[in-house]
Design a binder for these strands. Structure first.
Lengths: 188, 188
DNA sequence: GCCATTAGGAACCAAATGGTACAAAACAAA
DNA sequence: TTTGTTTTGTACCATTTGGTTCCTAATGGC
């Protein structure tokens, strides 16, 4: 009935996520964004409302791809210990300088944009629940309150780990620290 | 011999630090910055080179004021345990939504500005050494390698704590977690 | 092959940005 | 009081920004 679009929506959003993740919102101007998405101005504004809405779409895509994959890995882990399952959160990454997109979004747009702040908060909760699920599965910490505290602790550590990574420190293996925390949670 | 400046340099820099810390670099336009610093365009460009140089001056001021105070508190702490001394890093703050200026700087300008990245790195090292000093003083962890790893762990936790705070979660008391980590470091 | 409909592309635009120029004012020394 | 110097404030400017317009091209149903 009409001319079909030539670009692939998922590919374009992946490109947007990558460059926003890497450079942030304002540091990515429209030409940069268009290049990363592989489309031109006309197609861009035909398919999306504006730059901010694409950023929010990238945030959603991060949720669908990265956060979901992480949570699924945590849930489906068949390793023998909580430490082994949770270590996926701290494994060295190819491009650690990108940091954590959730943290980046909170820092840059969170204070000024309620939608961004809310989505970041939701993703944070998803991660926390994923961690908590592992602790529950392995019965780390006897009582519920202690478990949630431990989950929070690991979540904080995760964010800190990502923040340091964005700062440029070479990624290290932090799984040993997990052992400490989990061991202590069981002892207490 | 000439007309003296009417504004106080330290007060102006404090204002710049506050608004940059709170809003970030790009979200703070020149009128905002001038308002926060309490001076007008002419005075601004007479006293400073440009907006970026003021941001970097604010970074230095953060180092001089906040980081130095934290390090000094850690060094001068006469409490009876490492946990008590280190808990200052996690005490609830009046305005947690500002987050950690080091992390904010790394996220927003670090990837594009080498000076900012270097200064942030230097402050990170200062904090780490401050933590390490406490561990050394209380002989937490038998060997040096273990101590530095523990210091890194606490530093990561600190950054994560600040990141969560900027996200808007109500600040909680995390000193208990310190106990776990430190206890485990001694046990291992 | 026609035609309605939509994508693609380039020229264009208004607004906001950081930064500059310059004149007036305030001060200190002589 | 005069003079030289520096601050202050306002008007102005060039550039970059995200966003719009509008024309052309391509497609699929009839």
């Amino acid at each position: 009935m009409a001319r079909p679009r030539e670009f692939d929506m998922d590919t374009a959003l992946d490109g947007a996520l990558d460059i926003f993740w890497r450079q942030g919102y304002v540091a990515t101007n429209l030409p940069d964004l268009l290049m990363a998405m592989g489309l031109t101005r006309g197609s861009f504004y035909k398919a999306f409302r504006d730059k901010l809405s694409v950023y929010i779409a990238a945030l959603d895509r991060y949720d669908d791809q990265v956060v979901s994959a992480t949570v699924a890995t945590l849930a489906g882990c068949d390793a023998g210990s909580a430490q082994a399952c949770l270590s996926v959160l701290f494994s060295p990454e190819a491009d650690a300088r990108k940091g954590c997109f959730i943290c980046n979004a909170v820092v840059e747009l969170g204070p000024a944009n309620e939608t961004v702040a809310a989505k970041a908060e939701a993703m944070t909760v998803r991660l926390r629940n994923g961690i908590l699920g592992v602790l529950d599965r392995f019965e780390v910490g006897e009582v519920g309150e202690k478990r949630t505290a431990t989950a929070d602790l690991i979540l904080h550590l995760y964010f800190g780990h990502k923040a340091i990574g964005k700062g440029g420190k070479p990624p290290e293996d932090w799984s040993a620290h997990l052992g400490w925390i989990l061991g202590q949670a069981n002892d207490a």
